[in-house]
Nucleic acid binder design. Structure first.
Lengths: 243, 243
DNA sequence: TTTTGTAATATTGTCGACAATTAACAGGCC
DNA sequence: GGCCTGTTAATTGTCGACAATATTACAAAA
């Protein structure tokens, strides 16, 4: 990535970095493979790559004007985050999940977001509480006026915030990874205003539980939140026969 | 890994592969980087590498008689599993955790093993039930006659079995990864016969819950199992001032 | 003795080339 | 016509060399 311009094959719009990312401690200088992984990863979770699409090393290398070495490592990083699958001697492709797998992914996410909520409710870090309140405000606002994309985005970020608030680095990384992998499908589950209103109420409940110093209630609220999301997403996938 | 001999720097004993491994579906042909990662990973979780020890690419390359390319990828794989940490331009080192991080790791493990137990209890796959019974038998036997190492090993494998029994691929991989990362410390928590007896009783309880078709009870039993393990391990670490 | 600056060394990062493997395709055979 | 098989093209896998960077050793000064 010698020149910051790059972007030739990928869609022209360079609105990368919309999404937070990776186990990166914060804003430190990322290595070349990490930068590449970040760009491609963002493209994937934003849906600019189709599920199942092959990613060829040389293509990416040309695109970023580097050799295949760093690209190879970038693909390994993306594999770690579940965004691509690498088959030996067959290259990498954007992860493609069937309904059952999406369900499984959400199942784990439900459990871990519950844990994160409980831990966050136990810690009650002032800074976190403030961000949480602001986030729920934003979510409510968008639920009334915004569109599905904006809402999904806001909820996504609130999930990351909650994971941060747990104060558990490992949990944080796992929730981040799961959020990335399921973003595509969460979006599907928030496409109707009705669902967004329901989701918004859940977030308010969760916030109340955290503020009310009720870790157990917070856990349950967070679990319900994701469970509702899953139920809708899976139902829609089944109807669409996206098996 | 042209020659199966290798092993020069690493301790002579080549009792690798004692531990199950990786998201590998089963016994399929592993790629070269995967093979290397597996060998080094086994060495790490068996404690043949000290925490914090640096792993130099050229050393490993010489050891396996390959170039640094595959080694680099192997290290990325190990990073994914949390066994090594890679710092840009500073190379890889065996992950070293302080007490707080060990606690955090177990916290997540408690939650996920609980989920695995619940799912396994809901599925009740006949083959899984049989293996589970056999495993608990084995554990009981070793609790009476065996030593700490044998017991730790048996319990470790039972954890993997439980993860498999959940039928959830993503959960399985996460539990595997967590089991690898915490094996070192679990061993610490099972060093007294008293603790092993307690652990054994927990496993019996879990088995009973699964057989008794009580998912909720299974979840709680599994959580208690790992929680007890964590409590002892963390307590011992604190005493040792391994901060 | 401790600290600090500089040089030497060791190690990681990246590259381009070649080897090995897989996938695509054309031609022959049943 | 469909299926097998050998050839060709495309793609991944591995390697050794060089560049960039970090670590260490050492010496000089405080």
């Amino acid at each position: 990535m010698k020149a910051a311009k790059a972007a030739s094959t990928a869609p022209a719009t360079d609105f990368d970095m919309v999404y937070a990312w990776s186990p990166s401690p914060s804003a430190q200088t990322l290595s070349l493979p990490e930068q590449i992984a970040e760009r491609i990863g963002n493209a994937i979770i934003q849906g600019r790559y189709e599920p199942g699409a092959r990613i060829q090393e040389q293509d990416v290398a040309d695109q970023f004007q580097v050799s295949r070495g760093p690209v190879r490592e970038a693909l390994r990083i993306l594999e770690r985050d579940g965004l691509v699958q690498i088959h030996a001697r067959r290259g990498a492709q954007v992860t493609q999940l069937n309904v059952g797998e999406v369900n499984d992914l959400f199942e784990v996410r439900i459990s871990l977001i519950g844990l994160a909520a409980r831990l966050a409710a136990e810690r009650r870090d002032p800074e976190f509480l403030a961000k949480m309140r602001a986030g729920v405000e934003r979510i409510s606002e968008i639920a009334k006026n915004g569109d599905a994309d904006a809402y999904t985005n806001a909820v996504y970020r609130q999930n990351l915030l909650l994971a941060e608030g747990s104060g558990n680095r490992f949990l944080r990384n796992m929730v981040f990874s799961l959020a990335h992998q399921t973003l595509r499908y969460s979006r599907l589950g928030l496409s109707t205003p009705k669902r967004r209103a329901q989701s918004m109420r859940n977030w308010r409940l969760l916030l109340a539980a955290i503020q009310g110093n009720a870790p157990k209630a917070a856990q349950e609220a967070a679990e319900k939140l994701v469970r509702d999301s899953r139920d809708t997403a899976v139902k829609m996938l089944r109807q669409e026969k996206v098996e």
